Amino acid sequence: MIKQILLDKSLLETAPGLKIGVIHYKDIIVGESPKMIKGRLQFYQETLHTELQELPLTEKEGILEWRKIFKAAGTDPARYRPSHESLARTVKKTGALSFVHSAADLNNFFSIQYMLPVGIYDASALHGTITIKVGGKYDTYEGLNGRTNNFEGKIVSTDEEGAFGSPIVDSHRTKTKIESTEALQLFYLPPSLPKEEAVKLLAASSKMFHQIHSGEASTIILDAEQPDFSF
Rank of each mutant, 00 (worst) to 15 (best):
Q211T: 10
I221M: 06
K207L: 09
S218Q: 12
A204V: 11
F231H: 03
L222M: 04
Q226N: 15
L222Q: 03
F209H: 03
Q211G: 09
P227W: 00
S230F: 05
E225C: 05
K200M: 08
K200T: 10
E225H: 09
H210M: 13
S214K: 14
H213S: 14
A224K: 06
Q226H: 14
S206G: 11
S230I: 01
P227Y: 05
I220K: 13
A224R: 05
T219E: 09
A203I: 04
F231V: 07
S230P: 00
L201C: 10
F231N: 00
A204Q: 11
K200W: 06
L202P: 01
S206D: 05
G215W: 01
M208S: 13
L202N: 03
Q211F: 09
T219D: 11
I220M: 10
T219R: 09
Q226E: 12
A217N: 07
L201P: 00
L202R: 00
I212R: 02
F209Q: 00
E225W: 04
S214C: 11
L222W: 03
S214Y: 06
H210N: 12
D228N: 15
S206T: 09
S206L: 07
H210A: 12
H210W: 11
F209Y: 08
A203C: 06
S214T: 14
A203T: 09
D223Y: 04
D228P: 02
A203G: 04
A204R: 12
L201Q: 10
A217C: 08
S205L: 00
A204P: 01
D228G: 01
M208Q: 14
A224D: 08
S205H: 03
F209K: 01
A224W: 04
E225F: 13
A217T: 07
K200V: 06
L222Y: 02
D228F: 15
A217L: 04
S218T: 11
S205R: 00
D228I: 03
S214M: 08
A217M: 11
F229Y: 15
A204T: 10
A203Q: 15
F209W: 04
D223W: 03
E216M: 12
T219Q: 11
F229L: 07
K200D: 13
T219N: 12
E216S: 14
S206M: 12
E225D: 15
T219P: 03
K200G: 01
I220Q: 13
Q211W: 08
H210E: 12
K207G: 02
H213C: 05
K207M: 10
E225P: 02
A203M: 08
S214H: 13
F229K: 06
G215S: 10
E225L: 09
E216K: 14
Q226F: 06
